[in-house]
Design a protein around this nucleic acid. Structure first.
Length: 547
DNA sequence: GTCGGAAGGA
DNA sequence: TCCTTCCGAC
């Protein structure tokens, strides 16, 4: 699997080194110093991709939460900011003014104060990078679900089992890691005096097992899982099934809650598939192992997907790409991306769930091949404007006018469709579409590989390119949207003619010239729906002969 | 102390 | 996009 980052190849992002790395990137002004250099290697190694957040891909600016992590990992700033003992990811700003000052120095904002800094921190709430620990002054909590996943996918214990002293409190074996609530902060969460990181540091012999025994996290109160909003139901949907065999929510001693999601139980200790990361600022990754029975998802969207791969989370951006820190397995990446995409669609997740990899994935077995979406814009996304207007329009005539307006706007559809969730798009495009977009996209063209049904309106559909015809025959008409309903009938006819025996072509033309005129909506091409529609030709001939 | 809207900068 | 700044509300 993935090789471990070597310190030589990772950036040593101590506060001072940040001055030379991030600082350079930030075009530091003269006199704008960086956090004081802690002499003596109290620092920790952050690979460069740790400075690339999913929310700001490509950003080279140090972000506040990175900075907070930096401070947290520094022993010398422990009097300023420190991990809250006993709470995974929770930290307390002991000296808000000093933290603000340091942040201001880093950002060359001498006017920085805690009020402003806290405002920036509050912006992380919505991003779920942080949340506030209510009732505790200056206490915040990292959402490592958000942070670890995209940025520290291989975070784990160090090779020798030593947990970095700057590591946040970690859940123990007996204390399950529960994703913190998004908004409903856990009022029950309490720090553990003399927790697993006494004095904020651990001795070199503090193996995870030792931690497990030491922490005795069984008395840790469970937290409400996070991801309540957009993905909660999906998370429940995807997670419950997986978790159900493991005993359900009660397994972790969690309090029953009518609305709460099942507890997310994270594997906490080295198992096959979990690898140490000497560069992790965290002690243990909540990442589940790959393919294990207890491969409990950390993310709803990853619930059914392997989560540990031997690739950098930012392969294209990683400074280690090709330089041996992480091996990159294209196949695994492909599979991973595909799985993510499928998860997004299957669980109606926001694509932001996988912010690092936009859903541009090679199609494998995803139910809704994404690559088809741009090809079938109209089919997959009934025009929102049309629907809205249809709801407003009471007159059928107005609606009819609207249809006329909407249909040619095929180019506009993808734009509007972007605003919708892909899952919704898929749902609409997989059966209910006829009901929803029926009037507008009535009578999707019968696929050319199917026998031509008696669909008078299908004639205007454009035949898909050859490669599309062969692509997913099994998806039949459901996946084959009506192509541009208003045009290209002639072009289609030409293509059809090319496929047609000359004799039939002549017959058809002769017949079409006679029949295409009365029914305008037919456009004359509806009789021919592809190779399988040859049976329609005799019929047409018969009709012509009748006349 | 905390929250979040608003405007604006880089 | 990520803050920074300001500010009113709680």
């Amino acid at each position: 699997m993935g090789r471990i980052l070597s310190p030589e190849k990772s950036l040593r992002l101590t506060p001072l080194s940040l001055c030379s790395t991030v600082g350079r990137r930030e075009k530091m002004k003269a006199g704008c110093s960086i956090v004081d250099k802690p002499e003596g290697g109290g620092g920790y190694h952050f690979p460069e991709w740790a400075y690339k957040t999913e929310s700001s891909p490509g950003s080279r600016q140090i972000q506040l939460w990175h900075f907070i992590l930096e401070l947290l990992q520094k022993e010398e700033f422990r009097h300023v900011i420190a991990w809250q003992q006993g709470e995974y990811g929770e930290f307390v700003i002991k000296d808000p003014d000093e933290v603000a000052r340091l942040w201001g120095r880093r950002k060359c904002k001498p006017q920085m104060n805690y009020d402003k800094l806290s405002r920036a921190l509050r912006y992380y709430y919505n991003k779920r990078i942080l949340h506030k620990t209510k009732g505790k002054r200056f206490t915040y909590k990292f959402n490592f679900n958000k942070l670890v996943m995209p940025n520290y996918p291989f975070i784990n214990i160090r090779p020798n089992g030593v947990v970095p002293q700057s590591a946040p409190p970690v859940p123990t074996a007996s204390s399950r890691f529960h994703f913190p609530p998004l908004d409903a902060h856990s009022p029950t969460e309490d720090s553990q005096p003399g927790g697993r990181f006494p004095g904020g540091s651990l001795g070199p012999g503090s193996t995870p097992e030792a931690l497990a025994g030491d922490g005795g996290g069984g008395d840790r109160k469970p937290e409400l899982p996070e991801l309540l909003e957009d993905s909660s139901s999906d998370w429940r949907r995807g997670g419950v099934d997986l978790l159900a065999p493991h005993g359900g929510p009660g397994g972790g001693g969690s309090v029953a809650h009518p609305k709460r999601k099942p507890d997310i139980v994270l594997p906490l200790f080295p198992r096959p598939g979990m690898f140490p990361d000497p560069h992790s600022p965290f002690a243990v990754s909540p990442l589940p192992g790959r393919g294990g029975v207890l491969n409990v998802p950390i993310s709803p969207a990853l619930s059914l997907t392997p989560t540990l791969f031997s690739y950098s989370p930012s392969p294209g951006l990683s400074p280690f790409t090709g330089s041996s820190c992480f091996s990159f397995n294209p196949e695994e990446m492909k599979h991973y991306l595909h799985s993510q995409a499928c998860s997004v669609f299957n669980y109606h997740l926001s694509p932001r769930t996988f912010p690092r990899y936009p859903l541009v994935v090679p199609p494998l077995q995803c139910q809704v091949p994404l690559e088809e979406q741009p090809q079938f814009p109209i089919k997959l996304q009934p025009p929102p404007a049309g629907r809205k207007n249809r709801e407003r329009l009471e007159s059928a005539e107005e609606a009819a006018q609207l249809r006329v307006k909407v249909e040619p706007a095929g180019d506009r559809e993808p734009e509007e469709a972007k605003g919708k969730d892909g899952a919704e798009r898929r749902e609409e495009g997989s059966g209910a579409e006829e009901g929803k977009g029926g009037p507008v996209f009535a009578r999707p063209a019968a696929p050319s590989w199917l026998p031509a049904p008696a669909q008078p309106g299908s004639s205007s559909s454009e035949e898909p390119p050859p490669e599309q015809q062969q692509q997913h025959p099994g998806e039949s008409g459901v996946e084959k949207p009506p192509r541009d309903p208003c045009g290209e009938a002639g072009a289609q006819e030409k293509r059809e003619d090319a496929l047609m025996p000359p004799k039939l072509r002549l017959k058809r033309r002769w017949n079409g010239d006679r029949q295409a005129e009365p029914p305008e909506e037919n456009g004359g091409s509806g009789l021919w729906n592809g190779p399988n529609a040859a049976a329609a030709v005799p019929k047409a001939v018969a009709t012509a002969s009748d006349t």
